Computed example of a mutant assay.
Amino acid sequence: MRYYSKQLFQIDAEVFYHSLTAHQLAVYSYLVFCSGSRNACQMNVRTIAAACGCSESSVRRALHGLRERGFIDVKGAVQKLRSGGYRRTCNRYYLLDRSEWKPPGGALCSSK
């Protein structure tokens, strides 16, 4: 696993009102950290699992949950080979705008 120098990143505070599981929050935070100016990143599940300290199956479940709730969109990526064929590569994850998130089930804390 590669370690990054001290970098700061921001995450929308509204994410805490959506009752995400610990794995979903960790995976979403890592995707935000890795995303570029287009709010997208491309990586494999193994890399996400290593960075978040959980299993690959936990990452897959978290990604599925985040996709269902409108936090991310996942596109499969393919690479064209010299032989003329194609091969599947890492998925590309797009972070969706807060307006596309499904409404939360209930607030965790009251606002003033």
Rank of each mutant, 00 (worst) to 15 (best):
S19W: 11
S19G: 05
L20W: 01
L20A: 02
A22L: 13
A22F: 10
A22K: 09
H23F: 05
L25N: 05
V27K: 00
Y28W: 10
S29G: 08
Y30T: 01
L31C: 03
F33W: 02
S35H: 11
G36E: 11
G36Q: 11
S37N: 13
S37G: 09
R38K: 14
N39M: 10
N39R: 13
Q42F: 01
M43T: 15
N44H: 08
N44K: 07
A49G: 04
A49D: 05
C52E: 05
G53L: 03
S55P: 00
E56N: 10
S58K: 02
S58P: 01
S58W: 01
V59W: 13
V59H: 05
R60D: 06
R60H: 05
R61Q: 12
A62W: 00
H64W: 07
H64A: 15
L66N: 03
L66V: 02
R67P: 02
E68M: 04
G70N: 03
F71R: 01
D73V: 05
D73R: 14
K75F: 01
V78Y: 02
Q79H: 10
K80I: 04
L81N: 09
L81C: 07
L81K: 13
R87F: 11
C90L: 06
N91S: 15
R92Q: 15
L95S: 01
L96D: 01
